[in-house]
Design a protein around this nucleic acid. Sequence first.
DNA 1: ACATTAAGTGATT
DNA 2: AATCACTTAATGT
Length: 211
Amino acid sequence: MENLKKLEKKLGDIFSEKLLEKLAEHGRIVQVEANTQVIARGDEVTDIPIVLSGTAKVVRTDDKGEEHILFYLNEKEACTATFSICATTKKSEIDFMMETDGELLLYPVRLMDYLTKEFPSWRYYVCRNYNNRMKEFLDTMDSIVFMKMDQRILKYLIKASKALHTKIITITHQEIANDLSTSRVVVSRLLKQLEHEGKIKLYRNRIELLF
DNA sequence: ACATTAAGTGATT
DNA sequence: AATCACTTAATGT
């Protein structure tokens, strides 16, 4: 069977032979053009997509129709979000679309349990996918918190400036760090960044606000 | 000149 | 962002 051949070539190194056979038997391989929407939010998910070639993206569309990319999926990756859907609802929380032309393996959701039960290599695959996604989420968390900290410092300086009625605040980075419960190093870096943005000027024990 | 403390940096997690 | 390890700059004695 030609599908099996294709799958062996693409996924042979991570899936066992038996599993590949199952995938070829029940799944179907589809060619998808760039920008095609495969799954829309709210759709009932009947198949889990595994990317065989090309790049797919998982997108969340907000109230205003702005799309926010949650992550990309490259060759051999599957949509982990879909896995969690299977355990609960059948409705998709996300939009799944192709970024480039490519091939997808669509495998019926209803057979997921069977795969998980029967094939270790499938379990490993799912776990790895989950882990990768988790890492990405941690990274975005970090950057969100980072953004907040630099806002907090700015606010802190403005507050201090108002309270002391001066644009030149006498304070050390360490003291700011203590007040915002972070480390001195972080404060130094963010202040440096603000200085480069031309918002403040740094001296020893003093910070001048330039606005 | 030397010690002490504040601030800056690169690398890592 | 946090931490470590280290450098550099400013200040006090």
